[in-house]
Amino acid sequence: MKIAIVNDDPITLELLNISVLSTPEHQVIWLAESGEQAANFAQTERPDLILMDINMPNMNGVQATRLIMQQSPCAILIVTSSIEDHSDLVFDALGAGAVDAVNTPVLLGNTDANGVDSLLHKIAAINLLIDSSIKHRIKTKKEILLIGASTGGPSALATILAALPIDFPIPIVIVQHVDVQFVSGLCDWLNKQTQLTVKLAEQGSHLFSGNVYMANSDKHLTINKFDVVQYQIEPLDSIHRPSINVLFDSIAHNWSGEALGVLLTGMGKDGAAGLLAMHKQDFCTFAQDEQSCAVYGMPKAAINLNAVDTVLPLDEIAKAICRHFNVDIKSQVMVHE
């Protein structure tokens, strides 16, 4: 595994370097003494894993992690003198995209260091995670499904997700208009309606095939050009936070593979302009029909903009999704609670 190390203390930097190189399957591709330097190096040569110090002047480990996950996303392990003493910063770094944290090894005498085994164990675990994730993410064609919903959306989402096959191989990203405090509960409820894995979309998360990601913030959910979840404040004047328009628009500008946008039942116009942006980039777009909508506002607005390729009743949308992505739809027996 290609590993990079960031630490503003030269002695600690060398100790970590020696510790990593004690395992033959790892190589250290660069060393950085600051967060700024690490961000620049990562853009030039992206490692598989970065060992990131948390306390550094100017740009600390949290800020460096956030910047690297935006510019050159990769696995980041926080290595700090004391996780307990720096718990606030550690949790901030995990929220910014770091995968784990470990205490820095401490020199004992001239040669031995306490904590090396713990460090190498963390690195080995992350290496297995990376290998598994890469295998899970590899497809001959990069694909994504986006769904936006508002009033009446939870029931509509349950209908679609329950009808998709358990081995549906494409990541699904959803913006549902709901207060952020209820998103976790909605996620749990949807998990009971489908055999797919429904999870909260966390800042810095990579998209894995077969998972359903729910927007989980009062900021706008976007997907950047590295296929990573990012939340942003802009646009400030949006009525809805998160906005379906912003998600769809990020795909129109950043996505290099195949994408399908689906706009479901909802009041207002959110999602219509974003669906049009996707349509103009030759991405396929669906909208729910009037008869099956609880409220026809959002789909109607998109249709009026000529942003929709296909208008479908709710119970036909999952089948159309599978046809679009050439996925075999299989019968599923679900117990709805």
Results as ranks from 00 to 15, higher is better:
327 V>N: 01
256 S>A: 10
111 T>Q: 10
2 K>E: 14
117 D>S: 09
222 T>N: 13
281 Q>S: 06
106 V>T: 04
226 F>I: 04
209 S>D: 14
77 L>R: 10
143 E>R: 15
81 S>H: 05
267 M>F: 01
94 L>I: 02
276 L>T: 03
109 G>S: 00
89 L>W: 11
248 F>V: 08
182 F>R: 00
11 I>N: 13
332 Q>R: 07
52 M>W: 08
221 L>Y: 12
22 S>V: 03
292 S>V: 02
157 L>M: 06
94 L>T: 08
265 T>D: 06
172 I>T: 11
313 P>A: 05
315 D>S: 10
328 D>T: 15
152 G>F: 14
313 P>E: 00
50 I>A: 10
254 N>T: 13
52 M>R: 13
70 Q>T: 08
196 L>W: 03
113 A>T: 04
194 T>E: 02
329 I>A: 10
335 V>A: 10
328 D>I: 15
177 H>D: 09
262 V>D: 00
15 L>F: 00
245 N>D: 14
231 Y>L: 06
273 A>P: 11
18 I>V: 07
208 F>I: 15
137 R>Q: 15
175 V>E: 03
312 L>P: 09
169 P>Q: 02
242 P>R: 15
199 K>A: 12
337 E>R: 10
289 D>P: 03
236 L>R: 09
262 V>E: 05
169 P>V: 05
45 E>K: 10
172 I>M: 10
127 N>L: 06
269 K>H: 09
80 T>V: 01
237 D>A: 12
259 A>W: 15
231 Y>V: 14
269 K>I: 06
137 R>I: 02
235 P>H: 06
67 L>K: 13
313 P>C: 08
38 A>V: 03
38 A>M: 02
187 C>D: 03
88 D>M: 11
265 T>G: 02
14 E>K: 03
223 I>V: 11
94 L>K: 11
178 V>N: 12
153 G>I: 00
37 Q>D: 13
258 E>I: 15
105 P>K: 04
283 F>W: 09
303 I>H: 07
159 T>K: 09
185 G>Y: 07
92 D>Q: 15
43 Q>W: 08
214 M>V: 06
334 M>T: 13
143 E>H: 08
306 N>F: 01
309 D>M: 04
276 L>W: 07
247 L>D: 02
155 S>D: 12
273 A>S: 14
128 L>D: 15
38 A>C: 14
123 I>N: 12
8 D>Y: 09
135 K>A: 08
259 A>D: 10
115 G>E: 05
174 I>H: 03
150 S>Y: 09
54 I>T: 07
96 A>T: 04
90 V>R: 04
1 M>S: 13
270 D>I: 05
217 S>G: 03
267 M>P: 05
329 I>V: 13
30 W>Q: 11
290 E>G: 05
119 L>Y: 01
82 S>V: 11
122 K>T: 01
175 V>K: 02
206 H>W: 07
53 D>A: 08
62 V>R: 10
10 P>M: 00
86 H>I: 13
103 N>K: 04
222 T>W: 09
4 A>N: 08
269 K>S: 04
43 Q>L: 13
257 G>F: 05
233 I>P: 02
225 K>L: 13
14 E>N: 14
281 Q>R: 12
86 H>P: 15
52 M>S: 01
296 Y>S: 00
169 P>N: 04
